[in-house]
Amino acid sequence: MTRALALAAALAVWTLIVYGNARLGFMNPVLLPTPWAVAEVGVATAQSGELARHVLTSLTRVAEGFGLAALAALALGILAGLCVPLRHMVEPVIEFVRPIPPLAFLPMFLVWFGLGEASKVAFIGYTTFFPMFIAVAASVLTVDVMLLRAAASLGASRADLIRRVILPAAMPGIIVALRVGFGLALFVIVGAEFMGADAGLGHLIMEGRTFFNPAQIVMGALVLGILGSLINALLLAAERRLVRARP
């Protein structure tokens, strides 16, 4: 209820600003689309089937890039969490690469993988891998030593400890890592699609700029917002089911 009210209020403020601006002539009214104009563009794009195509294209890229990165981050993160020498080798490299904003490397990916799907997928994979890898390794590493002691004194071997204690104990942290990674993938796909793409929500937004259609830009952004919160809600629900009773 409160949420619906808050959303309605935000919409009202937006409308107010648009009409206020039209009155006062603060900036050219063409630059500030009304909610109706945005809705109209949205409906038109949806009816032509274009919207579905863009959404599907973006989501496919996100799913592929994120999927590959998640597999790699899980495998290497768990290994690094378990194996101290490996961690010492990998850590300095990551600490060096991590502060570089991923978008700085986007042109490199275009040079390497061309304008097709491969560059977008690879870029999303690159962007999401490091934060997921670090979080997975950390959640494996911070498993309570007392749990390991308890299991060992019940007869657990090293393999039992990994399978029956470390992995389940690290699972909440691993799931959060994946959720954060997925959010990040949605975040950077737009940037990837700004450059050299012929479909996808990022492309739709950039097209709005090229053809001077501010309503289309706002519509693309809103669709991204809605997608993001829908997917986040889905992931949270999945998380709650996977990670049942926790202290």
Partner: peptide, 14 residues
Amino acid sequence: RGVVFQEYVLFPWL
């Protein structure tokens, strides 16, 4: 040699 700890140390996922 079974062990019982002060802080219980149960497996919370089980």
